[in-house]
Structure formats: structure tokens, C-alpha cells
Design a binder for these strands. Sequence first.
DNA 1: CTGAAAGCGCTTACAG
DNA 2: CTGAAAGCGCTTACAG
Lengths: 340, 340
Amino acid sequence: MVTMRDVAAEAGVSAMTVSNALTGRRPVSEPTRKLVLETVERLGYQVNVTARSLRQGRTGVVGIAVPTLDSHYYSRLSHLLIQAFAESGTASVVEETHASREGEIAAFRDSRLNAYDGLVIAALGLTEREIDALSRDVPVVVLGEQELHHTVDHVSMPNVAGAEAATRLLLDRGCRDLALVGFPSLDDRDELTQPEGAAFALRARGFSRALQGTGVSARAVHAGVTQAAGAQCVQDLLATGGVPDGVFCVTDTLAFGVVRELANHGVRVPDDVLVVGFDDVEDAQFHIPSLTSVAPDLDELIARTVHLLRQRIADPGTRPHEVTVSYRLVERESTRRPGR
Amino acid sequence: MVTMRDVAAEAGVSAMTVSNALTGRRPVSEPTRKLVLETVERLGYQVNVTARSLRQGRTGVVGIAVPTLDSHYYSRLSHLLIQAFAESGTASVVEETHASREGEIAAFRDSRLNAYDGLVIAALGLTEREIDALSRDVPVVVLGEQELHHTVDHVSMPNVAGAEAATRLLLDRGCRDLALVGFPSLDDRDELTQPEGAAFALRARGFSRALQGTGVSARAVHAGVTQAAGAQCVQDLLATGGVPDGVFCVTDTLAFGVVRELANHGVRVPDDVLVVGFDDVEDAQFHIPSLTSVAPDLDELIARTVHLLRQRIADPGTRPHEVTVSYRLVERESTRRPGR
DNA sequence: CTGAAAGCGCTTACAG
DNA sequence: CTGAAAGCGCTTACAG
């Protein structure tokens, strides 16, 4: 392997000068600079980032820790974060936490070990207290859903407001027998063993708020977070009280499973039941029927996240920020009642 | 930060002994080992992986380079690879190449710089010759579609055979006016500027092979790789010769766009047109209609890839392997002609 | 079983 | 503008 020393010897300068010519950290005379760069080119030298990192105490890489990449939402989020960091000149790598406490602790540990200069984490398994403690050593932005003690930068989704708006739409369209799919109870204090618990509890709270004082009946079902889980929820609804006339799903993924399983039972959307999802993943526009969904402003989410992390890396002392991004309710076929 | 020296001083041993107690590389007497581990625990010491990597010349991390994470197929593939490497005790990080030559070169460079001990790359932008040259310095397994010179380990999809089987199904179901969606020509030698060119050309070849000697007419359309591109292809078909009676799409993603846009024009699947996709992403089962698709054996793909890379890291001298995984054709509603 | 010395390849601080 | 020395925190030889 060609090292900086080899280049220096070949060019007849010191390693320092090679380093300076390459990084531009200190000025180098133009002829020397040209000579060095030519030699670098000729020998095919490439800087050893491990050595640089050890010396500098930082790697120039930020970590992105998400529960899983096997999810339309989190894979897209990771993609957008990578893009945005790249545009601001920062390399990033993605790590899966499997939504587990252990996986999330590992992400913090990897950051602290100089592997990353900063961390964006969609934390689902850790408690607020644990995040507070772990984030002391590492510049971190927490994405998502927890209600933290304001000791760490936090960018969250419009869970309550978005869910409330979605549910209001169902009420406005005349629904009087609603179902909440994806959270086991209408009381958001009920704990959910699923790690997405906190986010989904807030969406359940929005659902319940919209119902307050309306006298509209509602049931809650939960079977997991996948499309198959959405299908299972429909079976549970059918078994326990028949078909509702409106369904709010805490994610689009669940909604796709719901619509599909309703079709398996001959129940049509929107003719017989109206359905709304949350996240507005790309597929929502392409399904048949296309899916009405709460669309959080991902551009805002990404921009704020990248900005906050860069700021915290640059100045770890700044006061933590709390951001909730805005949303739009995008109405599509799944809530357009034909002929009413 | 607590270093190994601190632990050594505190425990009254040498740094060597701390290292050995931690790694188990050399035997350490049981009392000493206990003392060291206790001290490590008490001081909260964590090994600095950057320093270890610099000294060892390797990081214990493998790179996974995919075109984008904003894709059902590649995000799922990344997820499965991460899982499989984790199960075999190997950490991995994901990098996006944006399907560009530059991005793929960067992935090789990052590997060579000691950032990764090995690389799995879904290469789309590089030529065969470039891959041959770049892979000389790095243990690498190429995923996907290129027909290489057998100088590098290569795991590929059943592109030709899968596409041929999919097209045969359409013919068996009585289709006599076919369309190929996702490749611009029926001649697989035609270059596609899209980086997925090589894979899609092979799928086009399978399509053409199935047609040979049947006298069945066929058109080819191409507008990109997204669901929106699939929709665009339908518009192009309608403008240039009307609705075909069978469509083979080179990916499921395109197929979803096709089915959706057909519905926008009042054309029903499978009543008026049969549609088949490729990849068998999870959504294929949940769309309405559910999508018939070629399902490459991803478990096999993952297992072979992980095994080949570990083998090549352990012994860079072994002869390169060429693997094409098997597939199943999964028939669903999109090709079940009602009442015929 | 244990240790003192050297060095992985850079960059920082000190000098000129 | 340029360089010699030191050191980031480990692990690899070499010794005992």
C-alpha cells in the first residue's frame, strides 16, 4: 500500500507537506502543491482514513440508526437522510437497531467509539431516561415519537394532530362506527409492547380526541405493524362486531393490509368502508383504491434533523431543540364516497 | 476518555494484558483476567475501534453498496444482508451508490481504505472491465446482473429464465398481443441508459425467447424504474397501438404503476389485461389485484453471498464462483382470467 | 503467563 | 512556506 511517506519521499518533501497539499489546511507553494498532487496521482496514493480518524479523533461520518430497512417508511427516511447529509458534505452510514433496546444502545456505543461524529436515531426501545443518559457523550438527534425531557435535540412527527385530522375526515364523511387499527386501546396510556408504542399511542390519542363529544362508537385492534397484521386486524373486527364504516390505520402499511383483507371478504373501499392511513408512503397513490393519508412534511423533517445534528456537532453546548414537523392530509379514493 | 493504558495502570498490569484479557488472543491467568474485566467495567472502558483497526489493518465491518434505499427491492435486500451478516458475527454498513459509476467507485475506494474488510456491491454503473480491475484489491461479491469475466465472485438473479417463464404464462393464458414494460427494445443488445440496463436487458431477452416462433405480436416501452414510470408506459402504449392483452413488467414496482394507470383509463386487470411482474416484493400479495410475479430465491441469494464473501476474505486466492439463484413463478389474481 | 518496545499512517504543536 | 518530532490508542513481534 502506498503511504503518505512514500509520496513524500518520491516528491522530495516532508509528509507534512503532502498532508497540507492534500487537505489545504496550511498553505503550500504552488509549484510544490502541483508536484505533490502529480506524485499522488502517479503513485495512486489514497489517504488512510483510519489513521486520519485516530489522529483527529473524529471520522467525518455520521450514523443513522433506524429500526429496520425492511419498511417503506424507514428505508425512504434513511435514503432522504443520506442524500441530505451528502449534499452538506457529510458521509453517513445506516445501522439497523431492530427496534430493540439493545440495538439502540449499540448504536450509541458505535458512535462513542469514534465510529461516528454524530448520530441520528429513531429510538423506539429506549426509555426517555436512558436516551438522556446515553446522549451525553455523543452529538445526537432523536427522531420520532417519544416525549423527552428536553435534554436532547428531538424532531417529531405530527402524531396527535395528524391522527385527529384523519379521524375528523372520516366523521365529516359521515362515518358513525369507527375502528382504530394498530393500537390495542383507545386509551393512549395503555402500553404497547410493540416498540412503535409511543408514536402509535399518540396517534391513538389523536383518534380519541376527534371522537370526543361526538357519541360515535369506536373499537381498537392491534396485531403488529406489517401488512399481514393489518389483514389480521380486519379478521378480528369481523369476528367481534362486524364491519365498521370508517377505519383509521396508524400507518399506511397497515392500511394496505386492511383494504386487501376487506376485499377478500367482499367488502369494498370506499363503497362500504372508508379508510385512512398515516405516513403517505409513495405506494399510497398507486394502490387501488389510492389511499387517503396523513403526509408529514418529510422535507422539513430531514432539513431540521440534518441542521440540528451539524449544529450540535459544531457546538455541543447549545440548548436542545424540540421540533414537530407539519403535515398535510392528502385525500384520495379510499375516502371518496361514491354517490353520496 | 478512558484508554487501555488507564485500565492497565488502575489494575497494575500492562496494556498488553488488558488487551489479551479482552480479546482472548493470548491466555491470561484467571485472577488477572477477573481483575482486568472488573476494572474495565468500573472505569467504563470501551475499546477504541479506530486504533484497533489501524493496527490490525482491518475493521471487522463489511460494506453493502446498493443503488438506493428508496426501493422496495434494494431496501429489503440490504435488510436481509445485514441480518445474515449479523448472524455470522459480522457487522455491516449500507452505502448508496445512486447506481452511478462514481458512487460505485467510491464504494470500492471506501473498502480499500480499510473502512471495510469486504464489499457486497450491486453494481450497475461500472463496466465489467472496471469491476475486474477494482476488485483486485478488495474482497468483493458482485450482486446482480452483469455477465462478468469470471474474475470475481458473482451472484446473479434468474433474469432470463424467470422472464421467459413469466412470458410463457401470459401465452398459456391466451395472450396474443404482448407488451414489455421497462426495457426500450425487444433486442437485448440495445443499450439502456438506465443503470439497471444489464438486468433489464436479460429480462427482455427472456421475454423475446418465450415469443420465438409463436407469431405473437409484441411492443416494448420504457420510461424509467419507478411506479410513475410504469404509469407513463401505459400512456405510451395507449398512444401507440391501444391496450395489449398481456404485459410483462421487468419489476413489480413498474407493474404497480401499470395496473394503476390502466385503472385510471377504465381498463381492468385481469379482466381486460393480464399483468406479471418480477421480484415478488411483499406488496405483490397485498395489491388489488394481487400481482403475479417471478420470485427469485432471496434466501439462497443472501446465503450464497454471505458465504462467498466470508470465504474470499479468509482466502483471497480461491477461484471465483458464479452463482445464479433459482426462482418460482408465483401466480396471483393479476393473471387469473375470470370466466375463460 | 506477562511485559517493554515498536509501529500502524496519519496530523498536531512546536520551530524556523 | 516547510520540516522534525511526538503521539492518537491500540496490537504485533520479540523477550523472558
